[in-house]
Design a protein around this nucleic acid. Sequence first.
DNA 1: TTTAGCACTCAATTAGGTTAAGTGCTAAGA
DNA 2: TCTTAGCACTTAACCTAATTGAGTGCTAAA
Lengths: 346, 346
Amino acid sequence: MLTDRQKMILRAIVRDYTNNGMPVGSKALVEQLPVHVSSATIRNEMAVLENAGLIRKTHSSSGRVPSIQGYRYYVDHLVKPDVAKTNDIDLIKTSLGGDFQKIDEIVAQSAKILSDLTSYTTFTLKPELKDSRLSGFRLVPLGNRQVMAILVTDNGDVENQTFSVAHRVTSDQLEAVVRLINDQLVGLPLKDVVEKLKVQIPAEISRYMQQPEGFLKIFGDVLTRAAQERFYVGGRMNVLDFSEQNDIESLRSIYSLIDHTDDFAEVLGNPSNQIQVKIGDEISNNDLLRNYSLITATYDVDSHGQGIIALLGPTRMPYSKMIGLVGAFRNELARKLIDYYRHLDE
Amino acid sequence: MLTDRQKMILRAIVRDYTNNGMPVGSKALVEQLPVHVSSATIRNEMAVLENAGLIRKTHSSSGRVPSIQGYRYYVDHLVKPDVAKTNDIDLIKTSLGGDFQKIDEIVAQSAKILSDLTSYTTFTLKPELKDSRLSGFRLVPLGNRQVMAILVTDNGDVENQTFSVAHRVTSDQLEAVVRLINDQLVGLPLKDVVEKLKVQIPAEISRYMQQPEGFLKIFGDVLTRAAQERFYVGGRMNVLDFSEQNDIESLRSIYSLIDHTDDFAEVLGNPSNQIQVKIGDEISNNDLLRNYSLITATYDVDSHGQGIIALLGPTRMPYSKMIGLVGAFRNELARKLIDYYRHLDE
DNA sequence: TTTAGCACTCAATTAGGTTAAGTGCTAAGA
DNA sequence: TCTTAGCACTTAACCTAATTGAGTGCTAAA
């Protein structure tokens, strides 16, 4: 258990280090702390904090930097989220104020805004789709032999894909297929649709088509895409600024992690509480992200589920500011989306 | 005018330097050249080449590296494109052999393959669309108030966008609009469509709709997107490997150049001959790309126009190998696309 | 025209010395 | 028991000088 003074010192060390990036010494602390003690006293306290594993030295006679556990303690017990600047809130409001045609546009734009605001790399997921249901399916002949398949969910999400059909397929056949799917599958959760697609449907569809495999594959693809959790990335290149740039190889790995959708969707995970901070190897068990922190926040869109926004920066980020920003952003985004759905449903 | 021996030396310097990245000295040259002269003789010849501006020293007593002009001379007069390895050709054939649903998929995949093959960053443009014509337009109601607009060109390109319409718009009205557009605009080159969209159409459309502005904007957006030259990028992150990595700031600029579609489409330009090499500031007049070279190649898809593939690497790239690869790739891609169109048209 | 020989240049590395920031410890004071 | 002044010690960072090695240009002779 730390004394109040020790907490104050730890807080000061984290603050100073996240601002200046240089190990913090006892003298510097004496000057910025409101207590009147000597540097020797601070040194004694620092020794205690070091024994507790909360701070460490970079070499035997250096100042101290927070350890992972130190950041952890700071974030869990000491940090006070900043109230976002009205400037920033205005910027968020303006950027989200535009006239969007799709949820995806809003969510993608969100990643961009948040990365501009923070100078870090950001991720956004739209409200989760796991329980969304199929609400419509269309096949639109485009001339030649091209057909567009369109799938709509009750969340307002739209997925589409064009494909070519065999010459002999008539538009009557296409309509029959559409009717079949709409009759049998609309209203079902997407995962049930995936299930039925494997057994029941192929049999029925073959009444109307000789070789339904190609078509079923397309439908499956669109379905998979609609059911897949995808996230948008903002400020990709910001990693360049805050990574310890010496190591090109690890930069590459980080990018490949980010771009390999499934893996990183896992990392973003399903945060339980509203704003959560993962530090260093808490993010994922490989130590690629040892010097990074991830702030994750959920946002609620009433009956339309819960989305995620996240922010990847260096472990030595100004947590209070960033947590404040993420919090403010989350609120604005939720408001915007609730508004969007309201307009759509009315 | 260079003597044969001077040409041989220049070629050897470029080859050695592009392979090893270190300035080439007279002794090293003596060892690898098939002529039996002393290093002093080579030095004399090197002095001639230096006076001609074809090679330069990095400091007063260093070996030589090719100058921009040296590379230029090498590429124009000395390089012999390698015959691509059968390995690589097989890889290209396999990767392009899949079952693609859209041209865009093929062209995007091409960028990826070529970047894997070369370890550089690559760009691909599909056969140019400037003269393509509108061949169809659809509006598909998706339920709620969402509608998908679909535009098809006679090149087989499909663009689509979903948008929301005002409550009171009926499907009769939508159909009237679709009929109007198909009657009036199908068969026209896209740029004429853009033109008519500004004057004639708004008047006519207002017979069916009270406030056509929103709708016209959507149609305009889709149209613009269909008419826009977009390119695909492969191996973005490869820049990390071959840029002189010290300079994060210039890395950022390069990425922002690449991602800012219009600017870079300009850079890719309209190469006149089939394979063209731009070196250093020949690429663009800012000196961001001073240490880069761009190999551009066109590919012909018969009546469906001409596309571009390009490859961005360091000035000190192995030109003979890369030119060979680009040439081979261009042929395979052209073949694939001709095949694709043939299937579509038949 | 070619070549051996030689003085010269410069980047890269190594070694040694200095400085400044910071620590831990001790012993004395409150 | 807590705090503090004082001091010896450690280390990274910086600077300087010396050494090495690859390579050059030039000269004079073959």
